[in-house]
């Protein structure tokens, strides 16, 4: 046998460790969640594990905090997407052509993405949004306004601002990279034909950014559906359930109320939700894979 085909055969086996590990990581816990979601299982009551069918799901769906969790999740994901995609596109276009100090500007713009979520949340909560000594309170006072008590008066908006600050740089980073592959000759030709900046943006830039934008929306959605640390370190889901999203709700049922059955039912709901988004993302990525 030649060295060529021997190497080819050996190579086939190299993919096995990754596949086996990920297969185990994907199926074992998920199967367990599925099983737990059908039994009455509370960590504070040892030995209790009787089959209850869909009861956990019924409890989960009829729990008033489920509706709050669902709508908070949608509001958080929707608003953050809107803010990051719109501003991200504008900023990416703004910094596309050279100007003095562009590379430093780029570094400053993408920096928030590399800040760990707990630092992000606490810096905003204390140094900026504190109603007494925070920087925003100082700004309000200096123009004669009453400072906003961010986490009491507008808790959800505060979370949205914090999360958007972290994810706007992600959108900028992806979109400004995508801008670089824009056909400059086509741009020049459009300008020669007298196309204004808005016409160029609408008919050349936006179509060019269509796929990167789709990728940004879907990847952000996947991560935003699971936002946890920002809520955990600032509001703890409150006041009431005003900032409880699906992820935080499931966490509190599992590790604060020890109701494994119900938390697992919630977990399955979260998985189904994420899968709907993932289905579309994988189609887009699959197309780019086939197009190579």
């Amino acid at each position: 046998m030649s060295q060529l085909s021997r190497n080819a055969r050996a190579a086939r086996f190299l993919v096995a460790p990754s596949v086996l590990l990920l297969l185990a990581w994907m199926t074992v816990p998920l199967a367990m969640t599925l099983y737990y979601s059908t039994v009455n299982f509370n960590l504070t009551i040892p030995g209790l594990r009787n089959f209850v069918g869909f009861e956990n799901y019924i409890f989960f769906f009829t729990d008033p905090s489920f509706f709050a969790g669902m709508s908070n999740t949608l509001v958080l994901v929707g608003s953050t997407l809107l803010i990051t995609v719109v501003l991200g596109t504008l900023i990416a276009v703004l910094i596309d052509s050279p100007f003095p100090g562009r590379s430093l500007v780029r570094i400053l713009l993408i920096s928030p993405f590399f800040i760990m979520p707990t630092v992000n949340a606490l810096v905003w909560k204390n140094l900026l949004m504190n109603p007494v000594s925070g920087f925003f309170a100082f700004l309000s006072k200096s123009v004669g306004l009453t400072p906003i008590d961010w986490f009491t008066d507008v808790p959800m908006l505060s979370i949205i601002i914090i999360v958007s600050w972290q994810w706007l740089p992600f959108a900028i980073l992806i979109l400004m990279t995508a801008m670089q592959s824009l056909d400059q000759e086509q741009l020049e030709a459009a300008r020669m034909d007298g196309a204004g900046p808005i016409a160029i943006f609408r008919h050349i830039t936006l179509p060019h950014l269509a796929r990167p934008l789709a990728v940004v929306v879907m990847i952000e959605t996947i991560f935003l559906l699971s936002i946890f640390a920002e809520i955990f370190t600032t509001t703890g889901g409150g006041p009431g359930t005003q900032t409880t999203n699906l992820a935080y709700l499931i966490y509190s049922q599992a590790l604060l109320q020890y109701d494994v059955g119900m938390a697992s039912a919630g977990g399955i709901v979260a998985v189904v939700l994420a899968n709907i988004v993932a289905f579309f993302l994988i189609r887009v990525v699959g197309k780019s894979l086939a197009g190579e």
Binding site: V19, P29, M32, I282
Partner: peptide, 15 residues
């Protein structure tokens, strides 16, 4: 492999 990345962590928190 990509799809395993999309499993929300809360979905497998308990197990």
């Amino acid at each position: 492999m990509l799809s395993t990345k999309m499993l929300p962590p809360v979905g497998v928190l308990v197990p």
